[in-house]
Structures are given as structure tokens and as C-alpha cells.
């Protein structure tokens, strides 16, 4: 054996299940951020297509202008800003509930004496609020979609219909996945209680949830508010 040896690192496994990592960060958190970065490109492609096709539909109904079909029937501008504003508020506030849920899980061990502390410290409560707000958002979207279909706009009607339903539908599918994810966490919370050791799992779900929220911030402005 040669005299020259390469020094080995100090033992890498301390405690149970904790493997050595270069940055001391959790792998799952790096992965979710990478995933979110990738999702940026996904939504950029969808939003680009919506914008490219804006104003190119050869027939109505249109998002912001009324349209008269050849038979003389008038289709009013189809986007319902008040309803969507309400659903936007709901989704934004669900993000607020989500950060409270995460904080509650992180601070599970802290003593809670006052009523306010017990409310703020209840991870179940805030997960429920987040889930219900997410579900409410999906409800608003279901209402919007059915109303549009009733008014004569389907995914096949025109370019606006195709690109609108696909863009908002993709976002809605992301919200639905998020709601399932949060309900799964809630189930675990009921089964054995979520504590500080679960904070990372809740954090990852929260990052996904907030990302879905910021995508909606962009969609709401570009699709609904700018004509």
C-alpha cells in the first residue's frame, strides 16, 4: 500500500436517517424549487400562447368585447370580472392561511396560553382554512366554466376558448393537486399530529401552494384585467 492516502471526511451519518448533504439543506426542498423553476417555463408557454392568440379569433364570444354573430344574436363580453375578483381574493387569502398553517406546525411545541395563541397555533384550523379556500377557488372556476359554456363558449368554439380554457384549466388542475396534497397533510395531522419534524413536508406543500398563487396573480392581470 502506498504511503500517500487521501483523507476521508468525518463520519457522515449522525443521528438516524440523516445522511450527509453538501449544503446542509434538505434534498426535497432543493427538488421542489427546481420543480417550481421548471413550472415557470410551463406556464410561460401557456401564457405566451394565450397572448399570441389574443384578438385572433375569427368569431366570438370574446373576452372583453361584445360580438354579434351572423344571425344577429349578440354575445356580451364573456369575462366576469366581479366573480373572478372574488375568487382571486380567496386564493390570495388562502396563501395567508397557508403561512399560518406552516408557522403553527413549526411552533407546535411552544406553550400556548391565550386564546389567540391557541387559534394561531392550530395547524388543523389553518390547513382546513387553506383547503376550503382552495376548494372554493375551484368552485368559482367550475361556476365560471359552466357559465361560459352556457353562454356559448367552449374549448372548441374559437382560439380564445381553446387558449383560455387550457391556460386556466391547467392552473385549476394545479390547484386541485394542491388541495389533494393539503388534505393528505390534514389527514396525517388528524392521525398522528404534525409537529416540527414534519415542518419541512408542510413547507414543501406550502411552496407549491404559493407558487400556484403567484401564477394566478399573473394570469388574473394578463387575462382578466388587461383588455
Amino acid at each position: 500500500m502506498t504511503a500517500t492516502t487521501m483523507p476521508a471526511a468525518h463520519d457522515e451519518s449522525h443521528g438516524h436517517g440523516h445522511h450527509y448533504t453538501t449544503l446542509g439543506l434538505d434534498n426535497r426542498k432543493i427538488a421542489i424549487w427546481t420543480f417550481i423553476g421548471s413550472e415557470c417555463m410551463l406556464f410561460a408557454s401557456l401564457i405566451s400562447t394565450y397572448l399570441v392568440y389574443k384578438g385572433r379569433s375569427v368569431k366570438g364570444p370574446f373576452p372583453h368585447e361584445a360580438w354579434t354573430d351572423p344571425s344577429g344574436k349578440v354575445f356580451p363580453a364573456i369575462l366576469d370580472i366581479p366573480v373572478t375578483s372574488a375568487s382571486t381574493f380567496v386564493l390570495l387569502m388562502s396563501s395567508f392561511a397557508m403561512v399560518l398553517a406552516l408557522a403553527a406546525v413549526q411552533n407546535k411545541e411552544l406553550p400556548k396560553t391565550t386564546f389567540g395563541e391557541r387559534i394561531l397555533g392550530s395547524s388543523k384550523l389553518w390547513l382546513w382554512v387553506t383547503c376550503l379556500m382552495g376548494t372554493a377557488f375551484l368552485g368559482f372556476q367550475a361556476y365560471e366554466f359552466t357559465a361560459f359554456i352556457r353562454e356559448g363558449l367552449t374549448i372548441r368554439t374559437n382560439l380564445f376558448g381553446s387558449s383560455f380554457f387550457t391556460l386556466t384549466g391547467f392552473h385549476g388542475a394545479h390547484v386541485a393537486v394542491g388541495v389533494c396534497w393539503l388534505f393528505s397533510l390534514l389527514a396525517i395531522d388528524y392521525k398522528r399530529g404534525l409537529g416540527p419534524s414534519d415542518a419541512l413536508n408542510v413547507d414543501i406543500a406550502a411552496l407549491y401552494w404559493h407558487f400556484v398563487d403567484v401564477v394566478w396573480i399573473v394570469i388574473f392581470t394578463l387575462v382578466y384585467l388587461i383588455k
Binding site: 432543493i30 424549487w33 423553476g37 415557470c40 417555463m41
Partner: peptide
């Protein structure tokens, strides 16, 4: 990890 892809997008 977030801003890089966001800029490319």
C-alpha cells in the same frame, strides 16, 4: 434556483 428559470421564462 427560482430567479434563473424565471428570467429564462
Amino acid at each position: 434556483l427560482f430567479t434563473g428559470p424565471l428570467i429564462v421564462a
